[in-house]
């Protein structure tokens, strides 16, 4: 069997026309995706993790046959997204922005019935499937099955949207930031179900997020994407391992003046964040903390700063992300 998703060097550049004055208009080019490649298998969750504007939605749209790539190729369920779009459409469940995408004057159940008809589900099967999904996503408990969509909370909207993605029991799910802005119970429910769909029902799931914590707990494999490029990939653990064996010295300092100055003589990568008026959080990435920790603390104290707390930590996924998107540590 072929892989669930195969993406090869796809690129996409948007043309944006903008008016400049009365008669002039200029065309700008936004390179949203710059030749990314990856694969995803059945029974696992692959995460596209990246900040806003990284190209996550663009990638999902290309795979969902809603946007043509400029170059490169992509196959979903073994079908080419450009040449065999209708075959691809039969095999995907899609969830785009959670805020909209349903009819306001229909209730939850009626909306699902509508899309079941569009997806070609025979009516008796559709009704059974909807009963099942309404329970699975606890739409009935929330009263969302009988309530008009226009009265839904964001959490209900997201649940209904996932229910639609699951309607035709497609082997591949494309979920674009499915928990964005949700209340914690809804977010938890969705994450839980997504994991279940992959591991129990053997679906292949492409899941995008800009939330490290989420990627770490939901996904089996993470693709770090930034500015249209996949900068690293691996399991959450592997990604952390890939950082040259560095530890993070995490200091909380009550500073008199700029704590960065005295630290300048340490050439390791540093990150200094002001927390309150005179309280700073300093992260220093070093290979062997035991060699330099004493020296660092002494330097700070000698320059009149007060070191409130010191911790030596393993790098978090966020550290990994910063490492890969901004070059080396």
């Amino acid at each position: 069997m072929s892989r669930a998703i195969e993406v090869e060097k796809i690129t996409k550049t948007y043309r944006v026309k903008s008016r400049r004055g009365l008669f002039k208009s200029s065309v700008e080019f936004v390179e949203a995706v710059k030749g990314i490649s990856f694969t995803a298998d059945y029974g696992s969750i692959v995460c596209l993790l990246g900040p806003n504007g990284a190209g996550k939605t663009t990638t999902i749209k290309i795979l969902a046959t809603l946007l043509l790539p400029d170059s490169g190729s992509a196959r979903v369920a073994g079908y080419d997204v450009v040449k065999e779009a209708s075959k691809v459409r039969e095999n995907i469940g899609l969830m785009l922005t959670v805020e909209k995408g349903f009819y306001g004057k229909l209730n939850g159940r009626e909306n699902l019935e509508y899309f079941a008809a569009l997806y070609g589900l025979p009516r008796d099967i559709a009704l059974k499937r909807i009963d099942h999904l309404v329970k699975l996503l606890e739409l009935d408990k929330l009263g969302a099955d009988r309530k008009l969509y226009e009265e839904f909370s964001l959490g209900m909207k997201a649940r209904l949207s996932l229910a639609r993605a699951l309607l035709k029991d497609a082997p591949i799910l494309l979920l674009d930031e499915p928990t964005l802005g949700l209340d914690p119970p809804s977010a938890r429910k969705i994450r839980e179900l997504v994991r279940e769909m992959a591991h129990r029902e053997n679906k292949s799931i492409l899941y995008t997020t800009h939330n490290m914590f989420e990627a770490e707990i939901v996904c089996d494999r993470i693709l770090l994407i930034n500015k249209g490029v996949i900068v690293a990939e691996g399991s959450p653990e592997e990604l952390k391992d890939k950082i040259p064996k560095l530890k993070v010295i995490n200091l909380v300092i009550k500073a008199s003046g700029d704590p960065g100055k005295p630290l300048e003589r340490f050439t390791f990568r540093k990150e200094i964040k002001q927390e309150e008026n005179s309280v700073f959080n300093v992260k220093i990435y070093v290979p062997r903390p035991e060699d330099v920790l004493g020296e660092i603390v002494k330097t700070l104290v000698n320059s009149g700063h007060e070191v409130v707390n010191v911790r030596v930590e393993e790098p978090s996924l966020e550290d990994v992300f910063i490492y890969y998107s901004e070059g080396s540590i």
């Binding site: 969902a64 809603l66 459409r89 785009l96 805020e99 995408g101 569009l118 070609g120």
Partner: peptide, 18 residues
């Protein structure tokens, strides 16, 4: 405008019938 078009176009529905 309603955000439903993406789901219609990405659906396998027979366009003429729809």
């Amino acid at each position: 405008e309603n955000g439903t078009l993406v789901y219609i176009i990405s659906s396998p529905v027979n366009r003429l019938k729809y």
